[in-house]
Amino acid sequence: MPDHQRADARRNYARILAVAEEEVAARGADASLEQIARTAGVGSATVRRHFPTRRALLEAVSRTRIEALCVRAEELTGRGDSRDALLEWMGDVVAYCVSARGLAAALTYDGSPADPVHENSCSRSLEEAGAPLLRRAVRDGAVAAGVTVADLITLAVGIVLATEHHRDPAVEADRLFRLAVVGLSPLR
């Protein structure tokens, strides 16, 4: 949130974000923007002024979790087996997406033209954080050349979205991720 905003605008932003975090946790990415506005005690125009798109709201709600994933990637960079480090991080990405309803939706690519003000900063942050892990794994021959972090994020998001209504989404997402990992390894 911009620092140059008036104090009341900063308070509204904080209140909307707090309510949105609760609503997204309870209802997922489809949480009602109108309900968020009502609960926060502001008009829907105020919500839209701070969060012009649903994705902008989901990204703001997910920011803390994304930052934690970025820190985790940094911790794993250069440690142990490069393939294991990358897969451990990707497992963390999948687990976070499963546990944080709405995070997978915040990471999806919708094909919209790039908008520098409202681009997908969640995905960009994860791509930057995961790049050293992936480069090392590719250099070591543990992951096929040509695989990108964006590919890995798309894979994780697809698995999470495909399993979100499963009886035990965390177990099923982990199982499918481990199944997909076999396809990440270069042919020997």
Rank of each mutant, 00 (worst) to 15 (best):
L57S: 09
E88W: 02
D84Q: 15
P132A: 03
L126I: 04
R83L: 09
A56K: 04
L133Q: 07
G43K: 02
R54E: 10
L58H: 09
P132T: 05
G41Y: 12
A131D: 15
R139K: 09
L33I: 11
V138I: 14
A100T: 12
G111C: 03
R101S: 13
D151Y: 10
A95F: 07
R139P: 01
V42A: 10
G130V: 04
G141Y: 10
R54T: 09
T46L: 03
E67D: 14
R83C: 00
E59Y: 08
D81H: 13
C122F: 08
R38N: 05
A131P: 08
R136T: 13
V98H: 13
D151A: 04
L103Q: 12
A60V: 01
V143Y: 07
A85M: 08
A131F: 11
A60C: 05
L107A: 04
S82L: 06
R83M: 03
V71E: 15
S125T: 05
G102W: 12
T64F: 03
D151R: 05
R27Q: 10
G146V: 01
F51K: 08
V147A: 06
A150Y: 11
V98C: 11
L103T: 12
V117H: 05
A106F: 11
R27V: 01
A31I: 05
A73P: 12
A40Q: 07
P52T: 00
A56L: 02
C122H: 11
R49K: 10
V42T: 13
R135Q: 14
H118P: 00
G28N: 14
D81V: 01
C97I: 02
E74Y: 06
G146A: 03
G111A: 01
D92V: 00
T77K: 04
E88N: 06
T108Q: 14
T64C: 01
R48A: 04
A40H: 10
E119A: 02
I66L: 14
A105R: 12
L126A: 04
E127Y: 02
V61Q: 08
E23I: 01
A45F: 02
V149H: 11
V143W: 08
A104V: 11
I36S: 05
A40I: 00
G41E: 06
V147W: 13
V42R: 12
T46W: 05
H50F: 01
S32Q: 07
